[in-house]
Design a binder for these strands. Structure first.
Length: 428
RNA sequence: GUGGCCGUAGCUCAGCUGGUAGAGCAUCAGUUUGUGGUACUGAGGGUCGCGGGUUCGAAACCCGUCGGUCACCCCA
């Protein structure tokens, strides 16, 4: 074991996996930019208060934040999520509404690491501030859905719920609290604690002991105001009109306190239940106001990279891209030719690699094979003398000489002066 | 934060009831002194996560610790 390793919950993303991460973001950007969303890049660090406005009943804020006092005496936190940062940016810059933005980046939560759950984790997401239209809820949910399709994922389930207006939600919370308190004996000890902090969250309990009680709990639908019911109905109608299947799950309350009205979650059906939430979001009218801005409607979602990629692995889609180079230069004369040729190839847009340390031709040919290159350029003393280069296709069928030894295949000899043009044509 | 399981070469793992470490893959080289993908041969590479204890002797047993994993919790 080396002396230094990554901190718990932190990891290195190495090639070729790192290329897949970048492509993941590219695919996401393509989907959402096609719908008018622009990227917002916000700081990793924010004033602690920005995140405290998320709510004091959520562990993300109360227990899991990385925070510290900087050299200027400011109380700073590493962002545990991005929605609050986006809202803060909105309040600070006051862009025209509806403000449609997307983002990607790392977030930090001090949790016990597990597969699909890291202390530094990456998400992509979108937010729209300043529009209360149920059509927007549908657009957002549909974009997430479309993104999963773009990756190739099939086994994703969309769960949908509405928490109603703030007053509806408050009334429901009271009713839930009364219900659970009346049945306190049947509740697990853990849920008793949860009940004190946030009765809604008891609905999330995965303990078998709580299952029956949770099933018999009051349903949010009974508490919807007329407006909330109409909004939710419009969202469902919209999704249906787009042919997006969904399941209404009245137990879907989501973690962060700021949600109201529409909430939704995308579940990966191939993943274990503890980590099956690929992404989720909802409406959070009121968050901008709590950060000192005007009353502003907001809605968005965030999707976890790690879990989504785990789901991709399970479904055998969106594999890490090949990092193959087009041409590999084998030079047994010391390496200067390889330097010149690779540089010239790259200058005309042909990707090229080479071996180093003047290894044997066989060794260099092996490296050429591993590089995934379509062609090897071979330069030895004979070629230098004759002013030519051998171009050998690496993916062609192997040929055999009459005496049974390996043939030269379809390799050809081209004048050194024509080499770059020759290869450029061959690649295209 | 709580609990279960795990921690041996770069990777995946074997190592029986304690006698100072092995395989496959990968890497490098040779068989082929100018030609890859196959085959064969060989080489390098490990304070057996770390610390302490038991023992004549520990990779193996005990304790602690760190890390991973799974469940709870939380959430993406």
């Amino acid at each position: 074991m080396p002396e230094f390793q990554t901190s718990p919950g932190m990891r290195d993303i190495l090639p070729p996996e790192s290329a897949r991460w970048r492509r993941f973001v590219d695919v996401f950007a393509q989907v959402v930019e096609g719908a008018g969303y622009g990227q917002v890049i916000s700081p990793l660090l924010e004033d602690l208060g920005v995140f405290q406005r998320i709510g004091d009943a959520t562990d993300v804020v109360t227990k899991e934040m990385y925070d510290f006092v900087d050299k200027g005496g400011r109380h700073i936190a590493l962002r545990p999520e991005l929605t609050a940062s986006v809202c803060r940016a909105f309040v600070q810059h006051r862009p025209a509404t509806p403000w449609k933005v997307w983002y990607t980046g790392s977030q930090f939560r001090y949790e016990k690491p597990q597969r699909g759950r890291y202390r530094q984790f990456d998400q992509v997401g979108i937010e729209v501030l300043g529009a209360d239209d149920p059509n927007l809820d549908v657009e957002i949910i549909a974009l997430g859905w479309e993104f999963y399709r773009a990756l190739g994922l099939q086994k994703v389930r969309l769960l949908l719920n509405s928490l109603g207006e703030p007053a509806d939600r408050a009334a429901y919370v009271d009713a839930l609290k009364a219900y659970f308190e009346a049945n306190l004996d049947a509740l697990s000890d853990e849920s008793k604690i949860t009940l004190q902090k946030n009765p809604l969250r008891v609905l999330d309990s995965k303990r078998p002991q709580d299952a029956a009680l949770v099933a018999g709990a009051p349903k949010i639908a009974q508490f919807y105001s007329e407006g909330a019911a109409a909004h939710f109905a419009a969202v469902q109608a919209g999704l249906t009109s787009l042919g997006i299947p969904f399941t209404v799950d009245t137990k879907l309350v989501r973690g962060l306190d700021y949600y109201r009205h529409t909430t939704f979650e995308y579940q990966g059906l191939t993943l274990d239940s503890a980590q099956n939430a690929l992404g989720g979001g909802g409406r959070y009218d009121g968050l901008v106001e709590s950060l000192g801005g005007p009353a502003t409607a907001g809605i968005g979602f965030a999707l976890g990279l790690d879990r989504t990629l785990l789901a991709c692995d399970d479904e055998g889609v969106f594999a890490p891209p090949a990092t193959d180079v087009s041409v590999f230069v084998v030079d047994t004369t010391g390496g200067a030719e390889a330097l010149a040729i690779t540089t010239a190839l790259r200058a005309v847009g042909v990707s090229a690699d080479r071996a180093y340390e003047n290894r044997s031709m066989k060794s260099q040919m092996k490296a050429a094979d591993r590089s995934g290159a379509a062609y090897a350029v071979i330069i030895g003393s004979n070629e230098v003398e004759a002013g030519v280069a051998v171009v050998r296709p690496l993916r062609a069928e192997r040929t055999v000489n009459p005496d049974g030894t390996d043939g030269d295949g379809t390799q050809s000899t081209v004048p050194r002066s024509d080499l770059i043009d020759h290869l450029k044509k061959a690649i295209s």
